[in-house]
Write a protein that binds this DNA or RNA. Structure first.
Length: 225
DNA sequence: CACTGATCATGA
DNA sequence: TCATGATCAGTG
């Protein structure tokens, strides 16, 4: 069966398509889609994510939008170890460092992206070839009240520090569930930000990431791990 | 095990 | 350069 899934017309169809992939290895999925499998992910860090986009008919592109804007769904792969724990933090989006006056949580990119996520667990570890890793059962997730509150709190605290010119003081410990960390091509990449005295400074671009404790909890909540 | 900062590929 | 897709690799 060499079937490329077309753009799903509904969330239910998308979920069906994702469920049909569970149990497949990454290598098997790649073969169906006629995609070559890299020996490791060192030079192809986003490869599995892109393979799933292709498999599920997500729109490509680099727009700051959800993967399925018409369905209001964001697609994310989540690497999981043999014990069911996330191996990595989850990148959410780039953090705005300028023009943030009046930016509210309700209008934030973090909230938009995380309002509905189709998580695709990928079981494996770093010592395992990408093709050997297995697709787990998908999880269509919307933050519950508690999760939404934590995300909002963290976002508001971090954004306040940024607006106060304190971006360089922010560490990955500042939030309970969200982290702010560098997100760039390399350590030399620079972008504008607000400095301690309100002046312009140059700093490394930052991104919002979900901590592994948070994604572990969301899996536990749904799969009763 | 979590945190940190760096890094890789690709396209607009 | 910035946005998408992320993981690597060293430290504590």
């Amino acid at each position: 069966m060499n079937k490329i899934v077309s753009r799903p017309a509904s969330v239910a169809a998308l979920l069906d398509n994702a469920q049909a992939l569970a149990g497949l290895s990454i290598g098997e999925l790649a073969a169906r889609l006629a995609q070559p499998v890299p020996a490791d992910l060192r030079r192809d860090k986003g490869w599995i994510g892109q393979l799933l986009e292709l498999a599920l008919g997500a729109s490509a592109g680099s727009k700051p939008e959800q993967d399925f804007p018409e369905l209001g769904v964001e697609l994310k792969t989540l690497p999981i170890d043999e014990r069911g724990r996330p191996l990595e933090t989850t990148f959410v989006c780039v953090a705005p460092l300028t023009d943030i006056a009046g930016l509210r949580w309700e209008d934030s990119n973090v909230r938009n992206k995380l309002s509905r996520v189709l998580w695709i667990p990928v079981l494996g570890n770093r010592t395992q070839a990408p093709g050997e890793r297995l697709l787990g059962p998908p999880l269509l997730w919307t933050p519950d009240e508690r999760e939404a509150q934590l995300l909002r709190q963290d976002w508001e605290e971090i954004m306040e520090l940024i607006s106060l010119g304190r971006v360089q003081e922010i560490t990955a410990r500042h939030g309970q569930v969200l982290q702010l960390r560098p997100k760039a091509a390399n350590g030399r990449a620079l972008t504008d930000a607000i400095g301690p005295a309100g002046q312009w400074i140059q700093t490394r671009p930052r991104g919002f990431y979900l901590k592994t404790t948070f994604t572990a909890g969301l899996l536990a909540r749904h799969f009763m791990l």
